[in-house]
Amino acid sequence: MRAIGTLAHRLAILAYIAFALFPLFWLVKVSVTPNDLLYSEGIRLWPSRTTFEHFRFVLAHSDFPLFFRNSLIVSLATAFVATALAGFAGYALSRFAFRGKLTVSGLLLVTQMFPLVMLVAPIFKLLSPLGLTNSLTGLVVVYVAFNVPFACFLMQSFFDGIPRDLEEAAMIDGASRFGAFRQIILPLTLPGIAATVGFVFTAAWSEMIFALMLISSNEKATFPVGLLSFVSKFSVDFGQMMAAGVLALIPACLFFLLIQRYLVQGLTAGAVKG
């Protein structure tokens, strides 16, 4: 009886893993399938011959390296700026009791519930006279704002995990409050900071709606914008599209490994954010 239960449990886990990985496996499979086999071996699990031709083409003869670079710049800048701002705000929320604290937390929470698609039109209108449409800087500004609330909650929970005694000891030892923050608290929060950077990077890397709206030229396109325009232009070359897709997957997976340990803390801190 117990053995059957254990077997069923393992099989169920395997089924979940298969369901989670199959789409990604298929992406990789098509990206290494030579064009001449794509249709004849359409639903075979692995092609009889594999090729890296699609990757070579995408890397050498398409704009994807450019899109990749743009996305990397935007996502890294967003991640670092948002984490820095959230670090300070999260510290204030964690360490000070001040009038208005509840309002600030409430405001941050509300922005998480908010239909961001509502802001597409007004943000476009407001950024355009500032020259921030069709600009990577503009995207970074928007992404930072969207990600700061969640990053604040995350950083606050990391700060909450550091005993107050430590900075009090430092302040008695002769440090100012800011000195204690910089020399004692920050070094101890480094893993939390890394996790926050990872979360924000992942979010910025996958953002699409505002990128579509704000970016109009190929040179400024981020990966989703580039990939979607590629799809509508050359919707026949599946191998190349999927090779590009695999490329988009790589940084996301790397950052996933970085934040894996903090997933539970992160998702419960935000509770609302995807």
Binding site: A20, L21, P23, S206, M208, L228, A248, A252
Partner: peptide
């Protein structure tokens, strides 16, 4: 948990 890390545009296309 890996699917959560896959960018949503890629999830859709995939």
């Amino acid at each position: 948990f890996l699917p959560w890390a896959v960018p949503t545009f890629l999830t859709g296309l995939n």
